[in-house]
Simulated assay, not measured.
Amino acid sequence: MHSLQFTAESSSNGMIERDFTVGDVPGVLFSPPSGADRAPLVLMGHGGGTHKKHPSMAGRARLLVTGCGFHAAVIDAPGHGDRPRTAHDEREIAELYRARAAGEPEGPIVVRYNAHLAELAVPEYRTTLDALQELPEIGPDGPVGYWGINMGTAIGVPFVAIEPRITAAVFGQHWPEALAEKAKGITVPVEFDLQWDDEHIPREAGLALFDAFASKEKSLHVNSGKHKELPRFEADSAVRFFARHLGGRAVTAPA
């Protein structure tokens, strides 16, 4: 079992940011300034081609930390961020760029590549959760959520499907291939984001993935717009969702 090692720490605007490693997997933990009291944890998965400290990750973490008093943690997916790319990574990325330049559908390549990354990342997320729960400010029995869109969904669905410690999850914007069968094993509350005019993921595909979740409580959030036009207010909705299901102080919408 790998222990968690903190490697750097900084703080700003009411949030502490601590870099860590679990084995050879790098991650970051965002926490409230008063770390003595236990608080819920939300694990997050970043999108394809980004990394653990991408502005979208830091922004969501800040909402969770300052809005709810939660901890939020992200690890770099294989081949992303501070992790080296393998020859397999390079081949898949080159094929994606080729298809994009030729105007061919990207979905089959993304689904295949993300499924490969998920096979590697799911055990890493479980090991990271083990290590984070050894911290006194998180503990072994507190509620845990998962939040991941795009590639974060490709990794998150198989992770949540086999991880009983996750009690609520936010997913969205992915194809059902390789995920629908695993989604049938998820029964925790789910919030799911879908872009109605997504140029990559047909709306029927997004709806099929949402339909596959076995959760008795699941909410579908549909907005007009293309793949990269998910409204920022959906992040506020996700934070309110986690506050309801993980506990925490009320979230006030920004003026």
Rank of each mutant, 00 (worst) to 15 (best):
M1A: 11
M1T: 13
S3L: 06
F6D: 09
A8P: 00
S11M: 10
N13I: 05
E17S: 15
D19L: 09
D19W: 11
T21G: 01
D24Q: 13
G27N: 08
L29G: 02
A36C: 08
P40G: 09
V42E: 08
G45F: 00
G47S: 14
T50K: 04
T50Q: 10
H51Y: 13
K52G: 01
K53P: 00
P55D: 09
P55H: 02
S56T: 15
A58F: 04
R60K: 15
L63R: 15
L63V: 08
L63K: 15
L63S: 13
T66Q: 14
G67W: 04
H71Q: 08
V74H: 08
D76R: 01
D76C: 07
A77G: 13
P84W: 05
P84E: 14
R85S: 11
R85E: 14
A87M: 06
H88N: 13
D89I: 00
I93V: 12
E95L: 15
L96W: 01
L96M: 14
A99C: 13
A101H: 14
A101T: 10
P105I: 01
E106C: 03
E106P: 00
E106D: 09
P108T: 07
V110D: 01
V111G: 09
R112I: 04
Y113R: 13
N114I: 00
A115R: 15
L117N: 05
L117S: 07
A118W: 03
L120E: 10
R126E: 15
E134Q: 14
L135P: 03
P136Q: 06
E137N: 06
G139F: 11
D141K: 15
D141C: 03
P143I: 02
G145F: 02
W147R: 02
W147I: 01
W147L: 12
G148A: 03
G148L: 05
N150L: 11
N150R: 09
M151S: 06
M151L: 14
A154N: 14
A154G: 02
P158T: 00
V160A: 12
V160E: 10
P164C: 12
R165A: 13
A168W: 05
A168H: 00
Q173F: 04
W175C: 01
E181Q: 15
K182M: 08
G185C: 02
I186V: 12
E191D: 08
L194V: 11
Q195K: 07
W196H: 05
W196C: 09
D198C: 10
E199P: 06
E199Y: 00
H200A: 10
I201C: 03
P202H: 05
A208W: 12
A208D: 15
A212L: 02
F213V: 00
F213P: 00
A214L: 04
S215G: 04
S215L: 12
K216E: 15
S219F: 14
L220Y: 07
H221L: 15
V222G: 06
N223G: 11
G225L: 10
K228C: 07
K228V: 12
E229W: 10
P231H: 06
R232F: 05
E234P: 00
E234N: 15
A235M: 11
R240W: 01
F241Y: 05
F242D: 04
A243N: 13
A243H: 13
L246K: 02
L246S: 01
G247H: 07
G248L: 04
A250N: 10
